[in-house]
Write a protein that binds this DNA or RNA. Structure first.
Lengths: 192, 192
DNA sequence: GCTAACTGCTACATTCAAGTGACAGTTAGC
DNA sequence: GCTAACTGTCACTTGAATGTAGCAGTTAGC
């Protein structure tokens, strides 16, 4: 019995370590090249290609596991930010810091997930939660109300990627500071 | 003799049309799936796979031609914006509108161009021109001077993609308006 | 209308990744 | 220490994409 990604599974400890290494290496490789081969991922993780196939029945299953790891981390960040309850300014900053951390841990991009239904559904759910939060932030006067539909949400998503890629020297909190300041100046209502 | 992409080439008119269709279909498909096959691109262009191979010796050559088409369009947009001479506010807006148009015409992404040396060199040259422009804009008081290195340039590049993807109902000029306003609020020095 | 240019089609060789099977060797955990 | 779990390696099939060849048919452009 071991713990992987927060779940208890029947697996030997060394096998669980290998599994996590494969997922992490997979996320890293797939982020730069979405068509990375299983052989490349296995090599990056320092295990044999055959070992990957013992844990995942197919390439699709490995991808799904990587995406799931990212989605779980996002879910945790959203919960921790309390987007639906906390004061909007506080929730925004906490959310930004959490997602920057997720982006650095699981850099893989979810953009091309037309395939898997469950994954897309979860992703859409998260986007809806953030959009609801942005609506609340607009009602409470944090954001401007005269923006094109979807602009505030899309901008926030882009800035989160930007902070992840372009501010590698800053820790997640500092990167979130820069990001949130630029964001609120860009689409916020009043200057503080 | 015919004109393709502004160049005069020895080619029958129908062949030139086919060539442009292939390039355009290639850019469209490669934008959504960088590993799109030659067969898929040929099918999308409505020609036989063999026809593509008659014009391009290899997949790499086709990719290079697509990237070159995009780079040529970017070069034209930069020249038209007169980044090194025109008033910064005017140049910024003209550049934004031009790049939004380029992004819509040649949506293919240049990110993963570690391979081809000439293409990367041209891309780096353009980035340097824009960075020089942003330095000038900072000196002349349009942009804030207290931002992390590279932040203003990276933000502008992201916003250009964002405007292309998220404002499909607006024409290039209107999308550039929204983009530039958000940009100047976000990293500009004074509010107008 | 004639010719050279161009295209579509069928077929083929080659390479590469996906996925599977069997077996021998190693190691965690009792 | 013993056993079950786990791993690495060799070997194989399958499928898909790349790139090439020849031939028959069509069409632009003089």
């Amino acid at each position: 019995m071991c713990r992987v990604d927060g779940y208890t599974v029947a697996m030997r400890a060394d096998a669980a370590r290998n599994l996590e290494t494969v997922l992490s290496a997979g996320a890293r490789l797939l982020a730069t090249d979405p068509s990375a081969s299983i052989a490349a991922i296995a090599a990056a993780a320092g295990v044999d290609r055959r070992t990957v196939y013992r844990r995942f029945a197919s390439r699709e299953e490995l991808l799904a596991a990587v995406y799931k790891a990212r989605l779980d981390a996002i879910e945790q960040a959203i919960d921790a930010a309390r987007l639906d309850r906390a004061p909007v300014a506080v929730a925004l900053h906490r959310y930004a810091e959490g997602i920057v951390t997720v982006n650095r841990t699981w850099p893989v991009e979810l953009g091309r997930m037309r395939a898997d239904e469950t994954i897309r559904a979860r992703r859409d759910g998260f986007i809806e939660q953030v959009d609801a939060f942005l609506r609340r932030a607009t009602e409470e006067g944090l954001l401007r109300a005269d923006l094109p539909a979807g602009w505030a949400g899309a901008l926030l998503r882009q800035l989160l990627h930007l902070a992840t890629d372009e501010l590698p020297d800053l820790d997640a909190g500092q990167a979130a500071d820069v990001l949130v300041e630029t964001y609120l100046r860009g689409v916020g209502r009043d200057r503080t």
